[in-house]
């Protein structure tokens, strides 16, 4: 589902946000400092700080629907991954390095466009809950006439 090029893009350290919805169709969301694409491209793991995960986890337990948006500050390339909930668990110490590396990548992106990295260091990036989703659809969201087009 997610090809190698897109997997590289998604895991380089981007602005990542997961959206869900509750029983009344009201949206909820959480910031994610990192994401991992499984080798076959059919599943992704989204790392969400525990402190901000309650509403999203409750929604996923209720209906399992998620929409994750990834954006690269440098050029505004953006992509939305729709998925259905598979499972969640506390992120392991081994995964902390992944989260740190992607967060650092995101900081470098911000510095490239002239926003000092220190500015977002107040955000909480650990401990995280690892949310595993099965990918159901991919959409281009880079600003422009093709925004919203299905990628595969």
């Amino acid at each position: 589902m997610i090809d190698a090029e897109l997997a590289l893009f998604l895991q380089q350290g981007l602005a990542i946000n997961i959206g869900t919805r509750d029983a009344t169709l009201a949206p909820n969301a959480a910031y994610a400092p990192a994401a991992a694409v499984e080798p076959d491209g059919t599943h992704v793991v989204i790392y969400v700080p525990v402190v901000g995960a309650d509403a999203v986890l409750a929604d996923l337990a209720h209906n399992g629907q998620a929409a994750v948006v990834f954006a690269r500050p440098m050029d505004d390339r953006a992509c939305q991954v729709k998925g259905t909930y598979v499972s969640h668990r506390p992120a392991t110490d081994d995964e902390r390095a992944i989260v740190r590396a992607q967060w650092d990548g995101f900081m470098q992106q911000l510095e490239m466009i002239g926003t000092p990295g220190e500015s977002t260091r107040t955000w909480i990036t650990w401990p995280c809950v690892a949310i595993r989703l099965r990918v159901t659809a991919l959409f281009n969201q880079t600003p422009g006439p093709d925004a919203g087009a299905r990628l595969s």
């Binding site: 602005a15 959206g19 919805r21 009201a26 969301a29 929409a67 948006v69 939305q80 729709k82």
Partner: peptide, 21 residues
């Protein structure tokens, strides 16, 4: 200065996430 994010949900219950300028 920092892009915003917009979250909506279709009538069929499919959520949507997007960046806003």
């Amino acid at each position: 200065i920092i892009p915003a994010t917009l979250y909506t949900c279709a009538a069929d219950g499919t959520p949507n996430s997007a960046y806003l300028s």
